[in-house]
Design a protein around this nucleic acid. Structure first.
Lengths: 193, 193
DNA sequence: CCGTTTCTTGACCGATCGTTGAAGAATAGG
DNA sequence: CCTATTCTTCAACGATCGGTCAAGAAACGG
């Protein structure tokens, strides 16, 4: 019936995610997206609706892809403390490696768009809550395994871990020093016990 | 000899700082600055040189004013741990009060401008190092007072504190919940001992 | 009051922004 | 092959951006 799409929508969205992640919302022009995604302006609007909607779709992709992949480490068998440490080391390694200087896409979005976009804040708040909940459950499991004293409040510890994670990503934007991040991870994980 | 300035330069810079802090660099137009500072476009360029230079001046004012004021608490006599806790509680209180949702001006700058402005990154890196150094010295004093075990590495702890501080300011942008921030401060300070 | 200097004012610059719409090209069922 | 539908292309839109400049106004030593 109709003409077929000449590009891979998923691949374009993936590229858009990395571009927005690295350059921010205002820092990325539609013109630039057009060139980097290899698709025409009209196709971009036809397929994704516009710049803002493409950005929101990219955020979802980040959450369902990148974040979910990292958090999946929490499910591995054995020591829960070790699993938490693995997540943090994974993030730290990314922060000084491939993702050097780009921070966390969610955090970047929160910082850049929070004052002008309340809907964006709510979305990010929800995503952060999802992550914190994930930590919360692992911490309870760790307590059941006897790795963490039962007197500690798992809610407080989960929030503390999220806080450290936020810090790590900010650190990585300004001073991506492997040894420094390692020290932070050590102290953070040690604080659980 | 010449016509006198019709506005208070310091007051204008202070207002500019708060505006940039809340709205970011790209989020603040010269037009908006003109209106909010109550000075004309030409006067703004005459006095401050331009948008970017005004922003840099505002960053310096933030560091020498707001940050210095908060860190001054570290110098108070008595328990050093208590002093550190006071700084964190001060920041947390600000984050859910007057400064609700605006985060840290330095952090915001790092996140928004890091990818496109290397000079800005170096400046912020330097400011963060200054703060970390401040924590470092207090931690050493705490060890000398017997408040912190001498086996702990004060460099690692200082970096850890900076990391928590970054996290707090990010948290405050998205979910400025007093109880949650309090929990984070408790766990962070407890991690020192 | 004059003259020099600096500040203030407001119009204006070219560039870039995100978005739109009309026209042409490709697709696939009939 | 015809036709309905959707994608692609590209020029153009109005708005806004940061920055500039010439002309007028104010200040103060002389």
């Amino acid at each position: 019936m109709a003409r077929t799409l000449e590009f891979d929508k998923d691949q374009a969205l993936d590229r858009a995610m990395h571009i927005f992640w690295r350059r921010g919302y205002d820092g990325t022009s539609v013109d630039y997206l057009e060139r980097r995604l290899g698709i025409n302006r009209g196709s971009l609007y036809n397929t994704f609706g516009g710049k803002r909607q493409l950005y929101l779709a990219a955020l979802d992709r980040y959450m369902d892809g990148f974040v979910a992949d990292r958090m999946a480490t929490l499910d591995r068998p054995g020591s829960k403390i070790a699993a938490i440490r693995a997540v943090f080391e994974d993030v730290a390694a990314f922060s000084v490696g491939k993702g050097r200087g780009i921070g966390c896409f969610l955090t970047n979005s929160a910082v850049e768009l929070a004052p002008a976009d309340r809907a964006m804040v709510r979305k990010i708040e929800h995503d952060f809550a999802t992550m914190e909940d994930r930590f919360h459950h692992v911490l309870i499991a760790a307590q059941q395994r006897g790795e963490i004293n039962r007197s500690r409040d798992p809610h407080a510890l989960a929030r503390f871990l999220m806080n450290s994670l936020h810090g790590l990503r900010v650190m990585s934007k300004v001073s991506p020093d492997p040894a420094g991040l390692r020290q932070i991870v050590d102290v953070t994980v040690a604080a659980l016990q």
